[in-house]
């Protein structure tokens, strides 16, 4: 069974005037069909307003489809009686760390979720400890969250989700408000959760460097999925990505520019190491070292 499966998912934002008459209808999602396997790390790219966040909100039933269906671990999100199971299966982390932290001590914040699930106290403390260790924040368990850096707060927010033992975490631009160090911390944490704890990850981001390790990249535009594939397949299509207001990592762009200028480089170079390797080969062959 796939972790997440959608077929022809459509969502319309309907605006009404003061009398309740429909003023306008915006199709935020338009026939999205996709499948995310358990244990995968999937990145979703798309410009502001492309429908990424609307899609994310469907995954834990904050929004329900206008048409089509979405299954989370086989549960139809429209079945109201499964709501809590769905939300426990797929946890969400949002952009602003300050909006997600509610307690005055880190460990209490992390315990808030399982407490609401009715988990026995002893088990809660066990989960709090495990989750904080998993995100590398255990030493901060007795600190006040407001004294933490943005990256640390976001890791606490992730621990709070982990403590509910979800199978899947959806992160909606978790690094948008962080500095480069904070971004690295959060991405490293998420990758570890994926590889070590086998949590399925759905990462929505505007930073191209963050998706190069994903199993699969989905690009959205105008409420539709317009590209999907491995990072290498996606980033090989520089012009197409740019037409969707996206970009490629700077090193990919450099390799692409050099290839256009005649250097025989492969498409979709994703890291400095690959780049040096490929350029080295060109220069060695030409005997021009």
């Amino acid at each position: 069974m796939p972790m997440i499966q959608s077929s022809d998912l459509t969502f319309e934002y309907i605006r009404r005037d003061e009398e309740g008459n429909v003023e306008s209808i915006t199709k935020a999602l338009d026939g999205v069909s996709m499948e995310i396997k358990k244990g995968d790390f999937v990145a979703i790219l798309g410009h502001n307003g492309s429908g990424k966040s609307t899609l994310a909100k469907h995954i834990n039933a904050i929004l329900l489809p206008t048409e089509g269906t979405l299954y989370v671990d086989g549960m139809d999100t429209k079945e109201e009686e499964r709501l809590w199971d769905i939300r426990q299966t797929a946890g969400m982390v949002f952009q602003n760390p300050d909006n997600q932290i509610i307690a005055t001590v880190v460990e209490e914040d992390v315990g808030f979720g399982p407490e609401n699930l009715g988990v026995p106290t002893k088990e809660i403390w066990k989960r709090v400890e495990e989750s904080l260790r998993a995100v590398g924040m255990y030493e901060y368990r007795t600190h006040s969250p407001n004294k933490l850096s943005g990256g640390q707060k976001q890791r606490v927010a992730i621990a709070g989700i982990m403590a509910m033992k979800p199978q899947c975490i959806v992160l909606d631009e978790p690094t948008a408000m962080l500095d480069p160090n904070g971004r690295k911390e959060v991405i490293r944490t998420v990758r570890e959760l994926n590889s070590r704890e086998k949590v399925t990850v759905l990462l929505i981001t505007h930073y191209m460097e963050e998706v190069i390790h994903a199993d699969k990249v989905i690009v959205m535009d105008d409420g539709k999925i317009v590209m999907q594939g491995t990072p290498r397949e996606i980033f090989s299509q520089v012009e197409k990505l740019k037409s969707f207001r996206m970009d490629v990592p700077q090193i990919t762009e450099l390799a692409y520019e050099l290839k256009k200028a005649g250097m025989p480089l492969p498409d979709g170079i994703l890291s400095v190491e690959e780049f040096v390797e490929a350029v080295g080969r060109c220069c060695d062959v030409g005997g021009r070292r």
């Binding site: 762009e253 450099l254 050099l258 400095v272 780049f275 040096v276 350029v279 030409g286 070292r289």
Partner: peptide, 30 residues
């Protein structure tokens, strides 16, 4: 990237900070 190329023995100029500068530096050597 340009510094790593240099370390590998490809004698590019290493002061590039933009894609265009790096492109020019690599093409000059190639």
């Amino acid at each position: 990237a340009v510094n790593a190329l240099r370390e590998r023995g490809i004698l590019v100029k290493t002061d590039a900070t933009t894609v265009q500068e790096a492109k020019a530096a690599v093409l000059a050597v190639w």
